[in-house]
């Protein structure tokens, strides 16, 4: 099954997936590369933004350099009936950047995944402990990042 993208949409996605050029006229540069007018490009991008296919555009910062050096993935074992309550609660915690429900399995009973960021290990521990106490979820596992192995923009259109 291919994604239902038009050929123009594939061209645009292919041109923007690596990010915008560091240029004072980024849209003009992208449009030139595709061979369309900047207005055509902006129209499609605004449409995608309105449809929320583009969630956000702008600067993507390096958390480590911004002083958010301590980060961990914390996974929680939440009873099915409490998933919405706890998920909504975690989503409101400012130091949580991501919160997802994912399926557990026999060797991995955790179902709620959160990414927690803090400036120090101490602050991270305090945040995670508070999340546990306030949510009432006591079974959790903290997976500290040892090393970032790879971080690249998602590639949607793979040039062969």
């Amino acid at each position: 099954m291919k994604t239902p993208l038009s050929s123009l949409e594939r061209d645009i996605l292919s041109a923007v997936q690596y990010g915008m050029p560091v240029s004072r006229s980024p849209y003009r540069d992208i449009a030139d590369k595709i061979g369309i007018s900047p207005e055509e490009l902006l129209e499609k991008l605004r449409e995608w933004k309105a449809e929320k296919k583009i969630r956000r555009l702008g600067a993507i910062v390096n958390h480590f350099q911004m002083g958010h050096g301590a980060g961990a993935m914390v996974v929680w074992k939440v009873p099915k009936s409490e998933v919405d309550r706890v998920g909504d609660f975690f989503a409101m915690v400012p130091k949580v950047s991501h919160a997802y429900l994912r399926p557990p399995n026999e060797q991995w009973p955790y179902n709620l995944y959160t990414m927690v960021h803090a400036s120090s290990d101490k602050e991270l521990q305090e945040t995670v402990n508070a999340m546990s106490v306030e949510s009432g979820i006591t079974e959790f596992r903290q997976l500290k990042t040892v090393r970032e192995l790879k971080k690249v923009p998602p590639i949607y259109i793979i040039e062969l």
Partner: peptide, 21 residues
């Protein structure tokens, strides 16, 4: 900010699911 690496890139955060992925 880009050259010092504080800004990784200026780009688009795409909802892959809504985009059909």
């Amino acid at each position: 900010l880009v050259e010092s690496g504080v800004i990784r890139r200026i780009g688009f955060s795409i909802d892959s699911r809504k985009m059909g992925y």
